[in-house]
């Protein structure tokens, strides 16, 4: 069938993309000299993992969340506490905190997902604010805003110390490759199609015998889990952090990454994460105006590039190469 082979071809080129990403990680990790550049790329990678979860929820299933920072925070605190107090090996701690964030997401998704559109946005926003307050106030557990979490032991695998920025670059790169592979497989699966249908019309999807609630809960749980994974990696890389990281600002940035990147392609999340992470470094002199500038960017992108800035650039590139290829 034509359409299916078209999708199959898309899938193959997506897999090529993952391979290229892996190669880029290896080359970048071994050639980048400035630790500042490494650090920026590590943060981008970490946020990209959470943004990929946001892409599944918002881009594919059409469900908005402005509370992802909560799951990011759960992942970060869970892994930091597991490492400092319980002495659990880092890999297990990361896996455990991912599962914990996913479980938390599953738990809150049932009441939250009774709502749709603006109401879902408001409810997830409120949920994010509540969690932020809890992170800041449960001082005995989280250390609150000051001092927060201090001196999380560095990341290591089977006794090998991987706490250096260069080693973390590879760790985050591997996690990112794994995550995008997972999301790509989801996009091209039967489940992905059901989620895209859900975005189109919930009523019609239910009318075809599809358990809409189950799919929405699954998407929310996956997004929460990926935010948790990103949070756990963040905790290990950062080693010291406080509750202020997990404010509503982070939730909005994660949403921004998907909207700026692309709502129709998971690759957009990578682009969006890079863009949103690096942009502030150019705006250092305009600290007060940061939110204003974000607002302007978001508005311009939504009006002129409804499919995302990343997608527009890719399409533009394709059009240019096609024009030069067929004179």
């Amino acid at each position: 069938m034509m359409a299916r082979s078209f999708l199959a071809r898309r899938y193959r080129s997506d897999l090529m993309g993952v391979a290229l990403l892996a190669v880029a990680v290896v080359i970048g990790g071994s050639t980048i000299v400035k630790s500042y550049h490494l650090t920026m790329l590590i943060y981008s990678g970490i946020y990209a993992i959470a943004a990929l979860g946001m892409f599944v929820l918002f881009g594919i299933a059409g469900q908005i969340s402005i509370g992802q920072a909560a799951f990011f925070g759960v992942g970060a605190y869970a892994s930091a506490l597991a490492a400092t107090h319980a002495g659990i090996p880092p890999v297990l701690a990361v896996a455990g905190s991912t599962a914990m964030a996913a479980a938390f997401g599953w738990l809150v998704s049932r009441p939250l997902l009774r709502l749709t559109t603006n109401y879902l946005a408001m409810a997830t926003l409120a949920f994010g604010v509540i969690c932020f307050i809890l992170f800041a106030q449960l001082r005995s557990l989280t250390g609150g805003i000051d001092p927060g979490i201090v001196a999380t032991p560095g990341f290591s695998v089977a006794g090998f110390d991987l706490s250096s920025a260069r080693a973390m670059f590879f760790v985050v790169g591997a996690a990112l490759c794994g995550t995008i592979l997972l999301v790509l497989n989801l996009v091209h699966s039967r489940v992905g199609r059901a989620l895209r249908a859900l975005k189109g019309s919930e009523v019609a999807t239910a009318g075809l015998g599809i358990d809409v609630v189950r799919y929405k809960v699954a998407a929310f749980t996956l997004a929460a889990g990926l935010a948790g994974l990103a949070g756990a990696l963040f905790a290990y890389f950062q080693s010291a952090f406080n509750a202020s990281v997990f404010s509503v600002g982070l939730s909005i940035e994660l949403l921004l990454m998907v909207i700026v990147g692309s709502v129709s392609s998971p690759w957009g999340a990578l682009f969006g994460a890079l863009f949103v992470t690096i942009l502030p470094t150019f705006l250092e002199d305009f600290e007060q105006y940061k939110l204003l500038i974000y607002g302007v960017i978001l508005t311009v992108v939504m009006i002129y590039m409804p499919d995302g800035f990343g997608s527009t650039v890719v399409q533009l590139g394709r059009r240019l190469t096609r024009r030069t290829a067929t004179p």
Partner: peptide, 30 residues
């Protein structure tokens, strides 16, 4: 609603409600 579908009672909803972001074939697959 899904159990009703499985019994062979299928509704074509008012306003059509096709899935706009899916291809025709994908809609049929759904």
């Amino acid at each position: 609603a899904s159990a009703t579908v499985r019994r062979g009672v299928i509704q074509v909803p008012e306003g059509r409600l096709v899935f706009p972001d899916l291809t025709v074939l994908e809609n049929l697959e759904m």
